[in-house]
């Protein structure tokens, strides 16, 4: 036992979208870079989910036996806004989650990652189905949508109340940014002409050990200095509004929930030429997980793909390979 690695196939979404890699190519790539497993968004790379055809299941089965990768996590979404005119009722939502549990089981997954903001009230009515199929329902705790956000806190409270091995969390390392992602500032400056002073201020805030989610909480509105640096909303607002998705939390924010960690998203914005991630200290994160006896997977989730200029090639394969090299090395060092 020990910490194992995985790649969220989300990382390679543009290869798939542009028809450069099939799902088979992607599985091969993950195997070739020595990751132990995969995480998938069925809505992204499988057809007809959550009720795929038998033919789709047969293709999936062939792929999973060919590459023998751990089937780590199934990322699902609850389409509460399926219709323009109304929100889905609780009964409709619960039925949708049950369908997803059945599909996750059929695909071979034991963990479902529920997207942030999934309502806590789906848990109790879905628990029996989760137990029957052996699938844990785990909320994603993501920067800007995590601890201190009402819907996430409600979910965490419900998780503590029900205290089931079939309910847990998937923390995302966007919570632990020690530097604001450089790639985002570069993108916004080049594409929209974002004010360099605004970007510099964001860097300083992180250097001072805080972040914009915390400042917004403190002020009850956008940090006044950040607001004062928005000179032209067309150029600056996108960058400014996006900043609260990166938090600079202490690892100890996970302490009360550590036994519920079923899987971890290792967010990747930018691997540098030195082979480290620009914003996140993965040694610090892995040390914490190891110290707390975590022996699940940690999955590369490359999100730098959103911040590549339109006429530039997305270096997704290179970034994912470099990140895996880093975390595999760190795990070896830490576990001995």
């Amino acid at each position: 036992m020990g910490i194992k690695t995985a790649v969220s196939l989300y990382s390679l979404q543009y290869q798939f979208l542009q028809g450069k890699m099939t799902l088979d190519d992607i599985f091969k790539f993950v195997k070739d870079i020595n990751a132990d497993g995969i995480e998938i968004l069925p809505d992204q790379m499988l057809r007809g989910t959550p009720t795929p055809t038998e033919a789709t299941y047969a293709e999936w089965d062939a792929l999973t036996s060919k590459y023998n990768l751990d089937l780590v996590c199934d990322d699902i979404f609850l389409n509460t806004n399926l219709y323009k005119s109304r929100e889905l009722t609780r009964r409709e939502c619960i039925e949708l989650i049950k369908q997803e549990i059945i599909m996750a089981h059929r695909l071979g997954f034991k963990i479902i990652r529920l997207v942030s903001m999934t309502p806590a009230w789906i848990l109790e009515p879905c628990l029996e189905t989760a137990e029957k199929y052996g699938v844990a329902l785990c909320i994603e705790v993501h920067g800007g949508l995590g601890f201190g956000v009402d819907k996430t806190d409600e979910f965490l409270n419900e998780m503590l109340r029900l205290d089931s091995p079939y309910i847990g969390i998937v923390p995302d390392t966007s919570l632990f940014c020690r530097k604001v992602p450089r790639i985002v500032g570069n993108y916004c400056n080049k594409l929209f002409g974002t004010n360099p002073d605004l970007i510099k201020y964001a860097e300083e805030v992180f250097e001072n050990g805080t972040d914009f989610f915390a400042l917004e909480k403190k002020h009850g509105k956008m940090d006044p200095k950040l607001a004062s640096l928005i000179k032209d909303p067309a150029k600056d607002m996108f960058y400014a509004a996006n900043l609260s998705g990166y938090e600079n939390c202490a690892l100890s924010c996970m302490d009360p929930f550590v036994k519920y960690i079923k899987h971890v998203h290792f967010k990747l914005y930018e691997m540098t030429d030195e082979g480290i991630e620009y914003s996140i200290d993965f040694k610090e994160v892995l040390d914490y997980l190891h110290k707390h006896g975590y022996n699940g997977h940690v999955a590369t989730e490359y999100e730098g793909n959103r911040w590549i200029l339109p006429d530039e090639e997305i270096p997704d394969k290179e970034q994912v390979a470099s990140h895996q090299k880093l975390i595999q090395k760190l795990i070896k060092e830490i576990e001995g």
Binding site: Y10, L41, T49, N81, K84
Partner: peptide
């Protein structure tokens, strides 16, 4: 056109 999202959705979610 491809979808303006990173996953497939039912047509009713095309705003």
């Amino acid at each position: 056109t491809n979808i303006t999202y990173y996953r497939g959705i039912p047509l009713s979610m095309v705003n």
